[in-house]
Nucleic acid binder design. Structure first.
Length: 147
DNA sequence: TCCGGAATGC
DNA sequence: GCATTCCGGA
């Protein structure tokens, strides 16, 4: 691959993450519903200030929890569960295996991988990522015309 | 460390 | 339904 290709891929990655955020929000925001763990994980992953705690690494969609205790602490604060720890948090992550939202990258410590297409389909069955006109319209509205 | 069953709560 | 808590086993 050329250097330019990597740039385009990085750009697509950014667009896709923004799309994911947009896609799951309507489901989680209507007041009453509690935030879900994978929403929270994506949230941390988006913020540069948490790169020392959790970050994208390796294959596409793969991320590493660099500081398990800190991630658990932050999750505990969000859910008002002061006794949260990585053991419990990781059990919740393991429940995502069957739902095909996440899977484990075997052999790599604290490393998991998102099944991004599944994540979008769970919330918006009609939407099929890049092939969807919704996605293109969304890009136009939120990214391309942005700057 | 990582897995998944079981009981429980909201 | 989505965790939280606890835990025996690999």
């Amino acid at each position: 691959m050329k250097a330019g290709d990597y740039y385009i891929l990085a750009l697509l990655h950014q667009i896709y993450l923004k799309f994911l955020f947009w896609a799951y929000k309507p489901e989680s925001s209507p007041g009453s519903r509690q935030i879900q763990l994978w929403h929270f994980i994506l949230e941390l992953l988006q913020k540069e200030e948490y790169q020392g705690v959790i970050a994208w690494q390796g294959d596409y969609g793969e991320f590493v929890i660099k500081d398990p205790d800190e991630v658990a602490r932050l999750w505990g604060i969000r859910k008002c569960k002061p006794h949260m720890n990585y053991d419990k948090l990781s059990r919740a992550l393991r429940y995502y295996y069957n739902k095909r939202i996440l899977h484990k990258t075997k052999g790599k410590r604290f490393t998991y991988k998102f099944n991004f297409s599944k994540v979008v389909l769970v919330n918006y069955p009609i939407l099929d990522m890049a092939s969807s006109p919704f996605f293109l319209c969304w890009c136009a509205d939120n990214f391309i015309l942005d700057d």
